[in-house]
């Protein structure tokens, strides 16, 4: 189903009073399954990573909030740290063709190299299907899925919604806390926060 067909369904659902979020994803429930192609041409299904914690990171390299975390190497450091501990880190771009952040795969590979991305892969979601299923609102917007496939965190990277990289060290790092908890087999301290950033360019 194309993204453009999802919205009328959402509106119809609201009009009927069947109130539900446009996202199917819910913290505490199984994370929506998906299969997407990465910038190298390889297909990845969520089910492929069963048994490992998975991070989904919505991104758009031209968004100032994304630049905040990549410019300061914060995102790359998180990626490297948790991939080294056995997690899978999937950056996802849901920018539609013609919108900011939509690039051909080879341009993406150049950007990822320039950023020094340490993500497992960057998945291309140009029709926004997976973004809408997860309710991805902003770049960045992060989701943490535990090894059993349950969505355990949905929200912001940290608690300081600025574009200033100087604010990173003093912020409460929600995603790092969630991953530390998941890797330790402990409950995630804060499971849902309001994501901050630029809107996803569906």
């Amino acid at each position: 189903m194309k993204a453009k067909f999802l919205l009328p369904i959402l509106i119809a659902a609201l009009a009927l009073g069947a109130v539900q979020a446009w996202a199917q994803a819910a913290v505490g429930a199984p994370a929506p399954s998906f299969t997407l192609t990465d910038t190298k041409g390889a297909a990845h299904a969520l089910a492929d990573f069963a048994g490992k914690p998975v991070v989904l990171e919505w991104t758009n390299p031209e968004c100032p909030f994304v630049k905040k975390h990549y410019g300061a190497k914060n995102m790359q450091a998180l990626q490297a740290k948790y991939v080294a501990q056995g997690a899978v880190w999937l950056s996802v771009c849901s920018s539609a063709p013609g919108k900011q952040g939509h690039y051909p795969a080879d341009e993406w590979n150049r950007i990822l190299a320039e950023q020094g991305s340490a993500a497992t892969a960057l998945l291309l979601d140009p029709d926004g299907q997976v973004g809408l299923a997860y309710g991805a609102k902003t770049t960045p917007h992060l989701f943490v899925i535990d090894a059993a496939g349950t969505l355990v965190y949905d929200g912001a990277i940290d608690d300081n919604p600025s574009t200033d990289s100087a604010d990173i060290p003093g912020a409460r790092a929600y995603v790092a806390e969630a991953l530390d908890a998941v890797l330790a087999g402990a409950p995630v301290p804060v499971a849902q926060t309001k994501p901050y950033g630029c809107s996803v360019k569906y």
Partner: peptide, 12 residues
């Protein structure tokens, strides 16, 4: 003064 402005994309 700090601001964020957006249209199709955002600029701080």
């Amino acid at each position: 003064v700090d601001w964020l402005i957006c249209d199709e994309y955002c600029v701080p």
